[in-house]
Write a protein that binds this DNA or RNA. Structure first.
Length: 275
DNA sequence: CTAGCTTCCTGATAGC
DNA sequence: TGCTATCAGGAAGCTA
């Protein structure tokens, strides 16, 4: 479910509720979500650690711990992270509960169980999680027309597929690739090698803008976040392209069309995003 | 190297 | 109503 704006929203909600708290104990209901190290070591190593803060890299969430290790999490499709009172009812598909020193609990819920945890020791490298392969952040100053052209202009793949490639720009998923391409007025299936200079320019502008706009629009109070169980980000009402198949384009009124690009459903305005 | 397919899961929804 | 088929915002692993 979550892409960069949603992961960032989660970080902003969870960080102030975990920083400064230590982990009293952990119960792992489903060891399959622990990728590294094994679930037992994960549990014994994390117990007693104190959270110092959180960061985000692409769609990865990172809890920093006082001993220099990092608790890394990727939510994939349906992962949810909640800080709850201890007596909060247990959601179905709760796979991990950490008891915190302030009496609250940090819980991980994931219907489809695609999400993954890693506990990296002080000197453990990002290669363990794959974070080392991530490209630049959408708000990185290095994201320029020249950067995009250098990385992509010789590739024949559809521009939409390249936006989803985490090794070039990190954090864009199916929703925001549709939003970015609509904002930039580019046909999703257009091969990178035939994009015009004007199109590269619009992409370089719209990638950071759309992501920043969505992060802003996702803003939510901790109360509403908990009430929505960490999965209702109200991120559908403000979208302009994704899921709008058949609905009129806000810009020109033309109905959105749907197609499959690289195996992913894509919505686009046939007038604003011409072939 | 890339392209394309499968896999990991459950639940919501569409169609009959 | 009840059944089955299809699809879902991600990414790794596999084959060709």
């Amino acid at each position: 479910m979550p892409e960069l704006p949603e992961v960032e929203t989660i970080r902003r909600i969870i960080e102030p509720q975990t920083a400064g708290r230590s982990v009293v104990s952990i119960s792992i209901h489903n060891p399959k979500i622990i990728t590294f190290p094994d679930a037992d070591t994960f549990e014994s190593s994390l117990a007693g650690c104190t959270f110092t803060g959180m960061s985000r890299k692409g769609k990865f969430l990172i809890f920093h711990l006082d001993n220099g290790s990092r608790l890394v999490l990727h939510l994939r499709m349906t992962g949810q992270l909640l800080v709850t009172p201890p007596d909060y009812p247990e959601e179905k598909h709760t796979h991990l509960i950490a008891e915190l020193s302030d009496g609250k609990q940090l819980r991980y819920i994931d219907v489809r169980r695609f999400g993954r945890f890693w506990l990296l020791g002080k000197d453990e490298a990002d290669t363990v999680t794959g974070m080392d392969k991530l490209g630049i952040e959408p708000d990185d100053e290095a994201l320029t027309v020249d950067f995009l052209k250098e990385k992509l202009s010789k590739r024949r793949k559809a521009i939409k597929e390249m936006l989803l490639d985490q090794t070039i720009i990190a954090g864009i998923g199916n929703i925001y690739s549709d939003e970015i391409l609509h904002a930039a007025g580019i046909y999703p299936e257009k091969p990178c090698n035939i994009l015009t200079n004007a199109e590269w320019k619009r992409l370089a502008e719209q990638i950071p803008q759309v992501i920043a706009w969505a992060t802003e629009a996702n803003e939510i109070t901790p109360e509403d976040y908990l009430a929505g169980k960490g999965k209702e980000y109200r991120n559908t009402p403000f979208l302009r392209a994704y899921g709008h198949s058949g609905k009129p384009c806000e810009v020109c009124g033309t109905p959105f069309e749907k197609m499959i690009v690289g195996g992913r459903s894509s919505c686009y305005c046939p007038k604003c995003q011409k072939k």
